[in-house]
Computed example of a mutant assay.
Amino acid sequence: MNATPLRGALLAAFACTLVGASFTANSVLGAYPYAGGQALRYGLAALLLLPLLRSRHGSGLRARLRTLTWPRRVRLAALAGIGMVGFNLAVLAAERSAEPAVPGVFVGCAPIVVGVLVPTLEGRRPSRTVLYAAGLVAAGAFTVQGWGRTDLSGILFSVGALAGEVGFAVLAVPVLRPLGPALLSAAVCTVAAVESVLLGVLLDGQRFLRVPTGHEALALLWQAAVVTVIGFVCWYSGMRQIGAERATLFSGLIPVSAALTAPLAGTGTYGVGQGAGSLLVGAGVALGSGVLARRRRAEGNATVTGGVRGGHATPPFAGPPANGGATRHDRLTRGGAG
Protein backbone atom coordinates (compact mmCIF):
# COMPACT_ATOMS: atom_id res chain seq x y z
CA MET A 1 0.00 0.00 0.00
CA ASN A 2 1.08 3.59 -0.44
CA ALA A 3 2.36 5.27 2.71
CA THR A 4 -0.66 7.51 3.25
CA PRO A 5 -3.42 4.85 2.83
CA LEU A 6 -1.41 2.36 4.91
CA ARG A 7 -0.96 4.92 7.66
CA GLY A 8 -4.66 5.77 7.52
CA ALA A 9 -5.65 2.12 7.77
CA LEU A 10 -3.34 1.55 10.74
CA LEU A 11 -4.69 4.64 12.53
CA ALA A 12 -8.32 3.56 12.04
CA ALA A 13 -7.49 0.02 13.17
CA PHE A 14 -5.68 1.27 16.27
CA ALA A 15 -8.57 3.58 17.21
CA CYS A 16 -11.17 0.80 16.95
CA THR A 17 -8.95 -1.60 18.89
CA LEU A 18 -8.76 0.93 21.72
CA VAL A 19 -12.55 1.23 21.78
CA GLY A 20 -12.99 -2.54 21.95
CA ALA A 21 -10.42 -2.89 24.71
CA SER A 22 -12.23 -0.21 26.76
CA PHE A 23 -15.29 -2.35 27.49
CA THR A 24 -13.80 -3.35 30.85
CA ALA A 25 -13.74 0.32 31.85
CA ASN A 26 -17.38 0.61 30.81
CA SER A 27 -18.35 -2.16 33.23
CA VAL A 28 -16.62 -0.32 36.10
CA LEU A 29 -18.75 2.77 35.38
CA GLY A 30 -22.06 0.88 35.48
CA ALA A 31 -23.14 2.51 38.75
CA TYR A 32 -21.97 6.01 37.91
CA PRO A 33 -24.61 8.51 36.64
CA TYR A 34 -24.61 8.22 32.86
CA ALA A 35 -24.76 11.90 31.89
CA GLY A 36 -22.30 12.95 34.58
CA GLY A 37 -19.80 10.35 33.43
CA GLN A 38 -20.12 11.53 29.84
CA ALA A 39 -19.69 15.17 30.89
CA LEU A 40 -16.51 14.36 32.84
CA ARG A 41 -15.11 12.16 30.08
CA TYR A 42 -15.62 14.59 27.23
CA GLY A 43 -14.82 17.70 29.26
CA LEU A 44 -11.51 16.25 30.42
CA ALA A 45 -10.73 15.08 26.89
CA ALA A 46 -11.31 18.59 25.52
CA LEU A 47 -8.88 20.02 28.09
CA LEU A 48 -6.25 17.39 27.29
CA LEU A 49 -6.52 18.23 23.58
CA LEU A 50 -5.67 21.93 24.09
CA PRO A 51 -1.85 21.47 24.16
CA LEU A 52 -2.09 19.35 21.01
CA LEU A 53 -4.04 22.12 19.26
CA ARG A 54 -1.44 24.74 20.18
CA SER A 55 1.44 22.58 18.99
CA ARG A 56 -0.22 21.60 15.71
CA HIS A 57 -1.99 24.78 14.65
CA GLY A 58 -0.31 27.57 16.65
CA SER A 59 -1.33 30.98 15.33
CA GLY A 60 -3.44 29.34 12.63
CA LEU A 61 -5.93 28.05 15.20
CA ARG A 62 -8.06 31.21 15.06
CA ALA A 63 -8.19 31.05 11.28
CA ARG A 64 -9.49 27.48 11.45
CA LEU A 65 -12.05 28.43 14.07
CA ARG A 66 -13.32 31.17 11.77
CA THR A 67 -14.28 28.48 9.27
CA LEU A 68 -16.94 27.31 11.74
CA THR A 69 -19.96 28.81 10.04
CA TRP A 70 -23.37 28.32 11.60
CA PRO A 71 -24.22 25.32 9.39
CA ARG A 72 -20.98 23.68 10.50
CA ARG A 73 -21.71 24.46 14.15
CA VAL A 74 -25.09 22.82 13.80
CA ARG A 75 -23.39 19.80 12.23
CA LEU A 76 -20.93 19.60 15.14
CA ALA A 77 -23.82 19.73 17.60
CA ALA A 78 -25.53 16.90 15.70
CA LEU A 79 -22.30 14.91 15.54
CA ALA A 80 -21.80 15.18 19.30
CA GLY A 81 -25.46 14.61 20.12
CA ILE A 82 -26.04 11.66 17.77
CA GLY A 83 -22.64 10.05 17.37
CA MET A 84 -21.38 10.41 20.94
CA VAL A 85 -23.94 11.23 23.65
CA GLY A 86 -26.87 9.67 21.78
CA PHE A 87 -24.91 6.58 20.80
CA ASN A 88 -23.82 5.85 24.37
CA LEU A 89 -27.31 6.52 25.71
CA ALA A 90 -28.86 4.17 23.12
CA VAL A 91 -26.43 1.38 24.01
CA LEU A 92 -27.12 1.84 27.73
CA ALA A 93 -30.90 1.82 27.15
CA ALA A 94 -30.70 -1.22 24.89
CA GLU A 95 -28.79 -3.22 27.50
CA ARG A 96 -31.59 -2.71 30.02
CA SER A 97 -33.74 -5.21 28.14
CA ALA A 98 -31.25 -6.88 25.81
CA GLU A 99 -27.97 -8.69 26.20
CA PRO A 100 -24.93 -6.62 25.14
CA ALA A 101 -24.46 -8.73 22.00
CA VAL A 102 -27.70 -7.36 20.50
CA PRO A 103 -26.66 -3.68 20.13
CA GLY A 104 -23.22 -4.97 19.18
CA VAL A 105 -24.65 -6.88 16.22
CA PHE A 106 -26.59 -3.84 15.01
CA VAL A 107 -23.55 -1.57 15.35
CA GLY A 108 -21.60 -4.16 13.38
CA CYS A 109 -23.81 -3.33 10.38
CA ALA A 110 -22.52 0.27 10.31
CA PRO A 111 -19.96 -0.41 7.52
CA ILE A 112 -22.79 -1.48 5.20
CA VAL A 113 -24.89 1.62 5.92
CA VAL A 114 -21.92 3.99 5.63
CA GLY A 115 -20.76 2.23 2.45
CA VAL A 116 -24.10 3.08 0.84
CA LEU A 117 -24.89 6.41 2.46
CA VAL A 118 -21.62 8.33 1.96
CA PRO A 119 -21.29 7.79 -1.82
CA THR A 120 -25.03 8.40 -2.28
CA LEU A 121 -24.77 11.77 -0.52
CA GLU A 122 -21.78 12.62 -2.72
CA GLY A 123 -23.66 11.73 -5.90
CA ARG A 124 -21.75 8.59 -6.87
CA ARG A 125 -22.38 4.87 -6.89
CA PRO A 126 -21.33 2.76 -3.91
CA SER A 127 -18.21 0.67 -4.42
CA ARG A 128 -19.11 -3.00 -4.82
CA THR A 129 -15.78 -4.01 -3.29
CA VAL A 130 -16.46 -1.95 -0.16
CA LEU A 131 -19.99 -3.36 0.13
CA TYR A 132 -18.73 -6.95 -0.19
CA ALA A 133 -16.10 -6.19 2.44
CA ALA A 134 -18.71 -4.56 4.71
CA GLY A 135 -20.83 -7.71 4.47
CA LEU A 136 -17.88 -9.83 5.60
CA VAL A 137 -17.17 -7.46 8.48
CA ALA A 138 -20.81 -7.48 9.61
CA ALA A 139 -20.94 -11.28 9.42
CA GLY A 140 -17.71 -11.50 11.37
CA ALA A 141 -18.97 -9.14 14.07
CA PHE A 142 -22.14 -11.21 14.40
CA THR A 143 -20.11 -14.43 14.66
CA VAL A 144 -17.86 -12.98 17.35
CA GLN A 145 -20.73 -11.68 19.50
CA GLY A 146 -23.57 -14.08 18.73
CA TRP A 147 -27.19 -13.08 19.31
CA GLY A 148 -28.60 -12.57 22.78
CA ARG A 149 -31.95 -12.20 24.52
CA THR A 150 -33.92 -9.08 23.68
CA ASP A 151 -37.36 -7.57 23.20
CA LEU A 152 -38.84 -4.86 20.98
CA SER A 153 -37.44 -2.06 23.16
CA GLY A 154 -33.96 -3.56 23.00
CA ILE A 155 -34.13 -3.82 19.22
CA LEU A 156 -35.34 -0.23 18.80
CA PHE A 157 -32.61 1.18 21.02
CA SER A 158 -30.07 -1.01 19.20
CA VAL A 159 -31.21 0.57 15.92
CA GLY A 160 -30.62 3.92 17.62
CA ALA A 161 -27.09 2.81 18.49
CA LEU A 162 -26.54 1.90 14.84
CA ALA A 163 -27.73 5.38 13.82
CA GLY A 164 -25.29 6.90 16.29
CA GLU A 165 -22.36 4.87 14.94
CA VAL A 166 -23.23 5.85 11.37
CA GLY A 167 -23.66 9.49 12.36
CA PHE A 168 -20.26 9.53 14.04
CA ALA A 169 -18.65 8.92 10.64
CA VAL A 170 -21.06 10.50 8.14
CA LEU A 171 -21.66 13.79 9.98
CA ALA A 172 -17.92 14.36 10.32
CA VAL A 173 -17.11 14.13 6.61
CA PRO A 174 -17.80 17.78 5.57
CA VAL A 175 -16.02 19.32 8.61
CA LEU A 176 -13.03 16.98 8.88
CA ARG A 177 -10.89 18.56 6.18
CA PRO A 178 -11.31 22.26 7.15
CA LEU A 179 -10.85 21.60 10.89
CA GLY A 180 -8.42 18.70 10.95
CA PRO A 181 -8.57 15.66 13.27
CA ALA A 182 -7.31 17.33 16.46
CA LEU A 183 -9.51 20.44 16.28
CA LEU A 184 -12.55 18.40 15.23
CA SER A 185 -12.01 16.05 18.18
CA ALA A 186 -11.65 18.95 20.61
CA ALA A 187 -14.72 20.73 19.22
CA VAL A 188 -17.05 17.73 19.39
CA CYS A 189 -15.78 16.79 22.87
CA THR A 190 -16.54 20.31 24.10
CA VAL A 191 -20.02 20.23 22.60
CA ALA A 192 -20.66 16.70 23.91
CA ALA A 193 -19.64 17.76 27.44
CA VAL A 194 -22.12 20.66 27.36
CA GLU A 195 -24.88 18.45 25.96
CA SER A 196 -24.18 15.83 28.66
CA VAL A 197 -24.49 18.44 31.41
CA LEU A 198 -27.82 19.67 30.01
CA LEU A 199 -29.07 16.09 29.69
CA GLY A 200 -27.95 15.26 33.22
CA VAL A 201 -29.69 18.27 34.74
CA LEU A 202 -32.84 17.41 32.79
CA LEU A 203 -32.91 13.73 33.77
CA ASP A 204 -31.28 13.60 37.20
CA GLY A 205 -31.17 17.15 38.50
CA GLN A 206 -28.35 17.80 40.96
CA ARG A 207 -27.68 14.06 41.29
CA PHE A 208 -26.25 13.82 37.77
CA LEU A 209 -22.72 14.34 39.11
CA ARG A 210 -20.92 12.89 42.13
CA VAL A 211 -17.35 12.30 43.24
CA PRO A 212 -16.19 9.06 41.59
CA THR A 213 -14.61 6.23 43.53
CA GLY A 214 -10.99 5.33 42.92
CA HIS A 215 -11.82 2.66 40.33
CA GLU A 216 -14.37 4.93 38.65
CA ALA A 217 -11.86 7.80 38.48
CA LEU A 218 -9.29 5.53 36.80
CA ALA A 219 -11.91 4.29 34.34
CA LEU A 220 -13.00 7.85 33.50
CA LEU A 221 -9.38 8.91 33.04
CA TRP A 222 -8.81 5.96 30.70
CA GLN A 223 -11.93 6.80 28.72
CA ALA A 224 -10.94 10.46 28.42
CA ALA A 225 -7.19 10.28 27.84
CA VAL A 226 -6.85 7.06 25.85
CA VAL A 227 -10.16 6.14 24.20
CA THR A 228 -11.31 9.70 23.48
CA VAL A 229 -8.17 11.82 22.98
CA ILE A 230 -5.93 9.22 21.32
CA GLY A 231 -8.78 7.20 19.81
CA PHE A 232 -10.66 10.15 18.30
CA VAL A 233 -7.57 11.80 16.82
CA CYS A 234 -6.38 8.50 15.33
CA TRP A 235 -9.86 7.71 14.00
CA TYR A 236 -10.38 11.04 12.27
CA SER A 237 -6.78 11.06 10.99
CA GLY A 238 -7.35 7.65 9.44
CA MET A 239 -10.74 8.64 8.06
CA ARG A 240 -9.27 11.74 6.40
CA GLN A 241 -6.69 9.59 4.62
CA ILE A 242 -8.75 6.58 3.49
CA GLY A 243 -12.33 7.93 3.50
CA ALA A 244 -15.31 7.25 5.73
CA GLU A 245 -16.39 4.12 3.85
CA ARG A 246 -13.12 2.28 4.30
CA ALA A 247 -12.42 3.63 7.77
CA THR A 248 -15.77 2.36 9.05
CA LEU A 249 -14.82 -1.17 7.98
CA PHE A 250 -12.37 -1.15 10.87
CA SER A 251 -15.24 -0.81 13.37
CA GLY A 252 -15.51 -4.57 12.97
CA LEU A 253 -12.34 -4.74 15.06
CA ILE A 254 -14.23 -3.40 18.09
CA PRO A 255 -15.96 -6.70 19.01
CA VAL A 256 -12.81 -8.62 18.05
CA SER A 257 -10.71 -6.50 20.42
CA ALA A 258 -13.34 -6.85 23.13
CA ALA A 259 -13.39 -10.63 22.71
CA LEU A 260 -9.59 -10.85 22.81
CA THR A 261 -9.29 -8.77 25.99
CA ALA A 262 -12.28 -10.30 27.81
CA PRO A 263 -10.33 -13.36 29.08
CA LEU A 264 -7.62 -11.06 30.46
CA ALA A 265 -10.24 -9.22 32.52
CA GLY A 266 -12.05 -12.43 33.50
CA THR A 267 -15.28 -11.30 31.83
CA GLY A 268 -15.47 -13.83 28.99
CA THR A 269 -13.75 -16.49 26.92
CA TYR A 270 -12.29 -16.63 23.43
CA GLY A 271 -13.41 -19.74 21.58
CA VAL A 272 -13.86 -21.17 18.10
CA GLY A 273 -16.75 -18.83 17.24
CA GLN A 274 -14.76 -15.75 18.19
CA GLY A 275 -11.79 -17.01 16.18
CA ALA A 276 -13.92 -17.65 13.08
CA GLY A 277 -15.58 -14.25 13.39
CA SER A 278 -12.19 -12.56 13.76
CA LEU A 279 -11.03 -14.19 10.51
CA LEU A 280 -14.14 -12.93 8.70
CA VAL A 281 -13.55 -9.40 9.99
CA GLY A 282 -9.91 -9.59 8.96
CA ALA A 283 -10.85 -10.77 5.47
CA GLY A 284 -13.39 -7.96 5.08
CA VAL A 285 -10.92 -5.32 6.24
CA ALA A 286 -8.19 -6.65 3.93
CA LEU A 287 -10.55 -6.70 0.95
CA GLY A 288 -12.14 -3.31 1.54
CA SER A 289 -8.96 -1.45 2.48
CA GLY A 290 -7.31 -2.44 -0.81
CA VAL A 291 -4.51 -4.56 0.66
CA LEU A 292 -5.20 -7.54 -1.61
CA ALA A 293 -5.64 -5.46 -4.77
CA ARG A 294 -2.47 -3.52 -4.11
CA ARG A 295 -0.51 -6.68 -3.44
CA ARG A 296 -1.63 -8.16 -6.78
CA ARG A 297 -0.76 -4.88 -8.52
CA ALA A 298 2.67 -4.82 -6.87
CA GLU A 299 3.34 -8.42 -7.92
CA GLY A 300 2.27 -7.58 -11.48
CA ASN A 301 4.55 -4.55 -11.60
CA ALA A 302 7.44 -6.63 -10.26
CA THR A 303 6.89 -9.18 -13.04
CA VAL A 304 6.90 -6.47 -15.71
CA THR A 305 9.99 -4.66 -14.43
CA GLY A 306 11.81 -7.94 -14.04
CA GLY A 307 11.07 -8.98 -17.64
CA VAL A 308 14.74 -8.79 -18.76
CA ARG A 309 15.63 -11.65 -16.45
CA GLY A 310 12.84 -13.67 -18.00
CA GLY A 311 14.19 -13.12 -21.50
CA HIS A 312 11.76 -10.31 -22.45
CA ALA A 313 13.46 -6.94 -22.47
CA THR A 314 11.36 -4.00 -21.37
CA PRO A 315 11.07 -1.39 -24.15
CA PRO A 316 13.22 1.66 -23.35
CA PHE A 317 10.29 4.07 -23.46
CA ALA A 318 7.88 1.86 -21.54
CA GLY A 319 6.90 3.49 -18.26
CA PRO A 320 4.02 3.39 -15.85
CA PRO A 321 0.50 3.35 -17.26
CA ALA A 322 -1.01 6.57 -18.43
CA ASN A 323 -1.48 9.21 -15.74
CA GLY A 324 -5.15 8.40 -15.46
CA GLY A 325 -4.49 4.81 -14.36
CA ALA A 326 -2.57 5.66 -11.21
CA THR A 327 -4.73 8.67 -10.41
CA ARG A 328 -7.96 6.69 -10.64
CA HIS A 329 -6.51 3.95 -8.47
CA ASP A 330 -5.62 6.52 -5.82
CA ARG A 331 -9.13 7.95 -6.00
CA LEU A 332 -10.60 4.49 -5.45
CA THR A 333 -8.33 3.92 -2.48
CA ARG A 334 -9.48 7.14 -0.85
CA GLY A 335 -13.15 6.33 -1.23
CA GLY A 336 -13.77 7.55 -4.75
CA ALA A 337 -16.29 6.27 -7.25
CA GLY A 338 -16.70 2.53 -7.25
Rank of each mutant, 00 (worst) to 15 (best):
R7P: 01
G8I: 03
A21R: 03
N26L: 15
S27M: 15
S27V: 11
Y32P: 01
P33I: 00
L49Q: 04
P51A: 08
L52H: 04
S55F: 12
S55R: 15
S55M: 14
R56V: 05
G60F: 03
R64D: 04
L65D: 08
L65V: 04
L68Q: 03
A77M: 13
A78S: 05
A78E: 07
A78Q: 05
G83T: 01
M84Y: 02
V85N: 08
L89R: 04
R96G: 07
S97K: 09
E99K: 03
G104N: 06
L121V: 06
E122G: 11
G123Q: 07
G123S: 09
L131G: 11
L131S: 02
Q145K: 13
D151W: 12
L152I: 08
G160C: 14
A163E: 11
E165C: 14
E165P: 06
A172V: 00
A172S: 07
V175T: 13
P178V: 00
R210K: 13
P212N: 11
L221C: 10
V227M: 14
I230P: 00
S237W: 01
R240N: 06
R246D: 01
R246E: 00
F250C: 13
S251Y: 15
A258G: 06
T269F: 14
G277Q: 12
G282P: 01
L292K: 07
A293E: 05
E299D: 13
G300A: 14
A318M: 12
P321D: 15
A322C: 08
A326K: 12
R328V: 03
